[in-house]
Nucleic acid binder design. Sequence first.
DNA 1: ATGAAAGCGCTAACAC
DNA 2: GTGTTAGCGCTTTCAT
Lengths: 337, 337
Amino acid sequence: MAQRPTMHDVAAAAGVSQAVVSLVLSGSSAGRASETTAQRVRDAAAELGYRTNLQAKSLKTGVTEIIGLVGDEVATSPFSGMMIKGAQDRAWQDQHTLMTVDTGGDDGLERAAIDTMLSHRVRGIIYTAMYHRELTVPAAALDTRVVCLNARDVDGRAPSVIPDEVTGGYEATRALLDAGHTRIGMINIHTSLPAATGRLEGYERALSEAGISRDPELIRPGDGTHRSGVRAIGDLLDLPSPPTAVFCGNDRTALGAYQALSARGLEVPGDISIVGFDDQDVLRDFFQPALTTVQLPFTEMGDRAAALALDAAAPAEVHLVHCPVIHRRSVGPPKGR
Amino acid sequence: MAQRPTMHDVAAAAGVSQAVVSLVLSGSSAGRASETTAQRVRDAAAELGYRTNLQAKSLKTGVTEIIGLVGDEVATSPFSGMMIKGAQDRAWQDQHTLMTVDTGGDDGLERAAIDTMLSHRVRGIIYTAMYHRELTVPAAALDTRVVCLNARDVDGRAPSVIPDEVTGGYEATRALLDAGHTRIGMINIHTSLPAATGRLEGYERALSEAGISRDPELIRPGDGTHRSGVRAIGDLLDLPSPPTAVFCGNDRTALGAYQALSARGLEVPGDISIVGFDDQDVLRDFFQPALTTVQLPFTEMGDRAAALALDAAAPAEVHLVHCPVIHRRSVGPPKGR
DNA sequence: ATGAAAGCGCTAACAC
DNA sequence: GTGTTAGCGCTTTCAT
């Protein structure tokens, strides 16, 4: 762990000047240095265990190869891991590294994190939300390139990458429609979330497109919990004319529905078809039979966000990322068909 | 997003020299600059939106304020999120930031990641495993300070921070012993894991300390899955003299046990007491009644690892972090007592 | 109490 | 083809 060798050391070892070392090692020596010299330099570098000092390089060039990623609960939510992975892999492809800070929702820490990143002269900041939501990018962050991930910048000053909830809800409902259902319930999640409004909008659009008139009784409120799935599916089944299929606003709700159904001796999809939303990893094993659901494309979203963070010219648009339906076993034809 | 102001700009604005700006902003101006001057400098800096250029600072000082964190699946496992959070918060307290790379288990990427971090002249590297295991630190990484997190460096060249599985298993078993049980089963997980051998060792130690002779029939193999919990608990119950309590090698196994028990019409803890291991967040809600289990102290482990990464003088020891028993509702007195 | 100056390791323009 | 040179923005020593 002695003092790291510098280009000067390599130059001395190879018997050339430091400038030549720079040229050779940066790969731009074509036509500048002879191949013999180049090889001698590379050998010397390897021999000494030379490694670029990125501080020095960045100081000179004025740009760093770091992308900052700030978010509430970035580390602790299972979802954000995928966003980070997507962003990281993309950054990596472009020789960049991610510097991550999980603010835990603490505004002071967030300010400090942004500050630190700016001091590090990051190439851009990916401002990430654990749950899809709307937010205002802190003014300080706008000193650099900012991209909102899983969040929409209400002021439209930064590009945003969010899941296309509407199309997701639409396609989830279509999957049910296509299986022959015409009486389709929906159990929503917290209505304050873009996820809730978007998914519901997709549901309604699909039904109206199919010429099915809206029945408010079929749309049940919920809060995204297991418990609310249990309750809402009960309400739905107790209707004079119960639905033959239900679109659940998220997987957790769907799991509640599954259990309530099984408690009543009803089968999925024999008696009733179910579609979820989120395709949550950790819940997957608990669905018997496997749940047909809509996937939140977090990895792709992370990828897109990183790409935008690296592209200084990208306009501050909203990028909707498609949420594909994952067809598994919880959808079948309506009972008695 | 114009060119960022430098200390020279601040100096010009405040009518002092750049050196004084450095002194004042670094806080070491006590007795060097007058308070009036200092204030003028700070005002000018704020006015211009000045921010330290950490590249330049690091180049000069020779040390960075970055800690690298490399791991397989760091981003995607629910556990590692907590380790990252713990490490980050600790790093943050010491003005450091985390640069994270998830290698996805790819060796090439891992090498590249370590290389990059070394080029960034990170203060240290936290080499993290998703599952507690033994490993060899890549030679390249040893160019800097390395700390193994949730992994033990078999060559003993780097300090390691790992959960104290043995004591965890011991205390889990003690919880059962203390409730009055004397016939206690254990369902193990993959025996190749330090988690499995350690937990079993703790179990055996607790029993032998209590003067209970070892009954091999009570120790069932498993692979950590839900399914293996279902199977093993069945085997245990079918014994001529079944246990009144079972220590499950992990929560997932315990969940299988719960379900098999409920399928047989048996109650926890009325008919049988259960203790798990891991205290896995996502499974928590599925336990009815709430599971008494042993917590893997990931946040604390991350904290310790970061602290070690920052302490160049720390010896390459193994740091065992205590795994506390979380008492909930799945332990009661033996039936018929 | 303040300023001048050197130099950290690198890139890149320019000279030979 | 290769070397010389001038900074990038900062910290720090030494003058003043």
